[in-house]
Design a protein around this nucleic acid. Structure first.
Lengths: 341, 341
DNA sequence: GTGAAAGCGCTAACAT
DNA sequence: ATGTTAGCGCTTTCAC
């Protein structure tokens, strides 16, 4: 039996309401509300002081239910992620959480598993929650999305653009440019016949990368043969890479570089190659630059995407801190070169 | 200019309220409420039908603000994670989200950065939100925690136990046993002089592992010399491992295995060793069994912790589906052996 | 500068 | 079996 609860307050102290604060400060409820919400020049300094004191003494916080009910809007911001198991999504979610928090907003994280029905279920739920905004980390087309587009709830698309409106609010990188950067880097180093392994093309980001890469090589006079462009049907990026590497090596097709549209795909590719003990594997490229790369994948050149700043951009889009600016937040990327020592 | 909004409904249709449903169904709002909440034998079949129909037609969902205000409890469950950048935490959060969802609960994810002040800030916020329960993924001692312990909001501790009450609701593995398992495995394979690299001992999980490992080796007649037990002051697990490996190799101390209290630490250790091109590194042990291990760390033996089932256990603890059972959910672990081919 | 009061959507007495 | 109504905590007119 350990001693519990030193009890500065009674065990389950009823949470103070605005009425308690008003009473304690000797003012009306309306005054407390005005003070707390900083309604301009509407309270004498002494009143303000009294109220603040009462608030502190009672450790008062406005009930979000009361507030939401009244204002028809909550402080919740929903983040619908296509796949939380993907460390990249988790990283964006983490940075978003911090940025929202600074604005007094609360992040609700949901995993849609890239499923339209589940996404709609969440959209409905968030409408019931009167969410302040909805952030998509990899949106998928769905009926409710169509319904809400143009409504009063801001919809923010991260990485992948709105499948139904390429001009919607967006945070991400210039994937076409990133693709060209990778191609240019490889070409400069003598690559002429790369293999290209990509994730499902439902994602606008993946599509843009694939198109840019193939066009770059074609423009350089060495179009990538179709047999070297692989997009296996697996669901997991790791499995896609592993399977693709298997097909490539089995076919005996020659290639002098491996370009993957994501780091996890590259991990899968590398695993297969390691297992077959290829003495001199070609250079491998990825996208994302997973934070673990320096530690576990020193062989992987990758496009560093500044995920840790995405949250900030998302928050700005939501709070409207960037008035007049356009709502396409294209953030800078950078190719990180790594090679076997 | 793309065509937007095919408008089956007016653009920003006011979300239907219970009154609208009642009107449409030709009944009172109380009846609607009863039907929707399944209050037993309190409605005729035809009334139920009418209500359900109206609900469907209006695509009605109860406002959570109204509900929360009335019932003094929301459907939000807060998950306070010590470090979202850690894939392990993200994995637990993901599984928790799914399990809560099935119960109609909504997960709010927060990153405390292991900071007591920030944790308290979140606890206050969640009190204002009238959260249904609070889940700690790596709790840290803090004043508000002490305040809320014993209150009416369930507190669930995952991985790390409540720093102020070892008997609080818990979901995790038997870390002492896991430590013994690792030691036994190593001893069986001839290890007699391992190095032990550990994270900060503030975590009860880490402490239990360290104690069990050192005791096991001592009991086997080969106590680990203090110079081989390292807990560098770095904050990041990866950096801890890298720094520790550096110290170890610099000292020239002999050791025949590397035991790390976490996989990320092992990643850091391995990186340093790779860089120094040690031809025959000793076996390396970790804890967590990061899902990426099979792909990027085939040299790492690790204790597989069933994180994907943690969410289920957490949800059961919250909804009280496990009446009578004790509230210490110790889940099974398993040592996964991997070695260089 | 401050207070009184309406009303947001919902549930739970209570009444019928 | 169903309807009426009070009231949860808050913001916001409208008076004063």
């Amino acid at each position: 039996m350990t001693m519990r609860r030193t009890a500065l307050k009674p065990p389950d102290a009823q949470q103070a309401s605005i009425a308690n604060v008003a009473e304690r400060a000797g003012v009306s409820i309306a005054t407390v509300s005005r003070v707390l919400n900083g309604v301009a020049n509407k309270a004498s300094p002494e009143t303000v002081a009294k109220v603040r004191q009462a608030v502190a003494e009672l450790d008062y916080r406005p009930s979000s239910a009361g507030k939401s009910l009244r204002q028809k809007q909550s402080r919740l911001v929903a983040v619908l992620a296509a796949n939380l198991a993907n460390p990249t999504m988790a990283a964006i979610a983490a940075s978003t959480e911090v940025a929202l928090r600074k604005q007094g907003l609360v992040m609700v994280l949901c995993d849609t598993h890239d499923d339209p029905d589940l996404q709609d279920e969440y959209l409905r739920e968030m409408r019931a929650q009167q969410a302040r905004a909805i952030v998509f980390l990899g949106a998928v087309a769905s009926p409710m999305l169509d319904m809400m587009r143009g409504g009063s709830t801001p919809l923010i698309f991260v990485n992948r653009r709105d499948p139904g409106d390429p001009d919607g609010d967006f945070v991400g990188i210039d994937n076409a440019q990133a693709g060209r950067d990778v191609a240019a880097h490889a070409l400069e180093r003598g690559v002429r016949r790369p293999a290209l392994i990509h994730a499902p093309l439902a994602s606008s980001a993946t599509r843009a990368r694939v198109v840019a890469i193939t066009e770059s090589f074609a423009a350089a006079g060495c179009p990538i043969p179709p047999s070297l462009i692989l997009g296996p049907p697996e669901r997991e990026h790791l499995a896609i890479g592993y399977a693709a590497a298997g097909m490539l090596l089995q076919n005996g097709d020659q290639f002098d570089a491996l370009i993957c549209t994501g780091d996890l795909i590259a991990f899968g590719v590398h695993r297969f190659i390691e297992e077959t003990a290829d003495p001199a594997p070609p250079p491998i490229y990825g996208f994302d630059d997973n934070p673990l790369n320096d530690w576990v994948a020193p062989w992987l050149s990758s496009v560093l995407i500044p995920y840790s700043t995405f949250g900030q951009a998302v928050a700005e889009l939501i709070t409207g801190d960037l008035v007049g600016t356009d709502r396409q937040r294209v953030l800078p990327h950078r190719l990180i070169e790594r090679r076997r020592s």
